[in-house]
């Protein structure tokens, strides 16, 4: 099981990012756990300033915008 954290202030792009990961995971049959992180101290703690950012299994893999569906699929397949 992969654990994802979506970093963002709760803006539309952040919600879309979380939804995208969830949908892709379902489509690929990968079990995931998604958590939205809105606390600024926690977001910056990951070294991310441009939201939305994505953390997979504790590592920052994306920052600054909604990731492309292909990119998300790539994370899920690894």
């Amino acid at each position: 099981m992969k654990s994802f954290k979506v970093l963002g202030s709760g803006c539309k792009n952040c919600v879309n990012t979380a939804k995208l990961i969830e949908e892709k995971a379902k489509a690929l049959g990968v079990e995931v756990q998604i958590e939205k992180v809105t606390d600024m101290a926690a977001i910056l703690g990951y070294g991310v300033m441009s939201t939305p950012g994505v953390v997979m299994d504790g590592k920052v893999i994306h920052a600054g915008g909604v990731p492309t569906p292909d990119k998300v699929a790539g994370w899920l397949r690894d």
Partner: peptide, 16 residues
Amino acid sequence: PFCSCSSVPLFIGFLE
């Protein structure tokens, strides 16, 4: 370019 929703983390990050 940055989305205006990033103003807050950007502000904090710069000050830090």
